[in-house]
């Protein structure tokens, strides 16, 4: 194809997206669109499955049977969401195995928040409330993104995720209304998860590299800073309601902006964790790699058995 032909295809492509038409797997697309989508969808998928670990950590120790089944179902959903998103990536011609390989060798990123440890039961509450809360803010607009398989996966994810945040907040309510010890546990979890949750919405707009292109492709509908503001504005009243204190001395309602002003985020910490030096980066990767490597003989056995079964069937027919 000549350069001019490509430019013309690109123009038509951008026009289709601008008209809110969906792009489907076999449609022509610019290479950059394909690559950007594989990157974003796989990062998202990786975040789901790495995100299973900090919470999975508490399944055996959940304080009641009711909490245990809710947590199990939630962590299981995360596996499902990872699966939907890997499937969406596969429509662009990259296999799940390749994506795992990128994750396991450190080439691919995942949400840094999962590199923080879950040290008390209240962390299950804080993660559901704050981390899932921030995730939902990010994800809901993606239900309208331009790439069909991604949008469909996100619709499924958002529908299923609606119980996750409620599950977490309910844990926090119980703790906040419990004994002083329980309330302290809840406050401590909020103190530790608040700032990482704000960071989770991404670097400030000034430092965000991909934003403009992503906006055009509807991979992003609002800037990181806008999302962060939305998250803070909706979460602060929720904390107030249960008598917990947001750990930010600079947090203040701004009448003029009709929004909360908030303190400086420690971006050094953010970049340190992104670059692999968070408290649990190594453990998380080790757990993923172990599961994959220890599962290899199992997956091989299933394939070998499937082939034998196929051969037997053919013999019967022949």
């Amino acid at each position: 194809m000549s350069e001019e032909q490509i430019r013309s295809l690109e123009r038509q492509f951008e026009e289709r997206i601008a008209r809110d038409e969906k792009i489907e797997p076999k449609d022509w697309m610019p290479e950059k669109y394909r690559k950007t989508h594989i990157r974003q969808m796989s990062q998202h998928a990786h975040s789901e499955i790495v995100g299973m670990l900090p919470e999975g950590n508490w399944i055996t120790r959940a304080p009641s049977l009711r909490r245990k089944v809710a947590l199990l179902a939630k962590v299981q959903d995360e596996a499902g969401h990872g699966l939907y998103l890997y499937s969406a990536c596969e429509t662009l011609g990259v296999s799940r195995e390749e994506l795992y390989d990128q994750l396991h060798t450190g080439k691919a990123k995942y949400s840094s928040i999962f590199n923080y440890p879950t040290v008390t039961w209240a962390d299950m509450g804080a993660i559901g409330w704050l981390v899932d809360g921030a995730a939902i803010i990010n994800q809901v607009p993606l239900c309208n993104t331009s790439y069909g398989p991604y949008a469909r996966a996100m619709i499924r994810v958002c529908k299923e995720e609606s119980f996750h945040q409620r599950q977490g907040y309910e844990i926090m309510i119980k703790l906040a209304n419990g004994t002083p010890e329980q309330k302290e546990m809840a406050q401590d979890a909020l103190n530790r998860w608040w700032w990482p949750s704000l960071m989770m919405l991404g670097p400030t707009d000034a430092e965000s590299i991909h934003t403009e292109q992503s906006m055009k492709w509807k991979l992003k509908r609002k800037s990181n800073d806008d999302l962060r503001q939305q998250f803070i504005d909706q979460t602060v009243p929720q904390a107030d309601l249960i008598g917990l204190t947001i750990p930010d001395p600079d947090l203040k309602w701004n009448e003029e902006r009709q929004s909360y002003d908030f303190g400086e985020i420690n971006w050094d910490e953010f970049w340190q964790v992104v670059k692999g030096h968070g408290p649990c980066n190594k453990e998380r990767m080790k757990a993923r790699v172990n599961a994959w490597e220890e599962g290899e003989w199992v997956r091989d056995a299933a394939m070998a058995y499937a082939e034998k079964k196929q051969e037997r069937k053919q013999k019967q027919v022949g």
Partner: peptide, 25 residues
């Protein structure tokens, strides 16, 4: 339940968690 997140494939992981959930029910 303690295997959730550590299965040989995502599909198998989800299946084993389902069994665990049935049992707890």
């Amino acid at each position: 339940g303690s295997l959730t997140g550590h299965g040989p494939s995502l599909e198998t992981d989800i299946a084993c968690t389902n069994i665990s959930l049935d049992l707890f029910g």
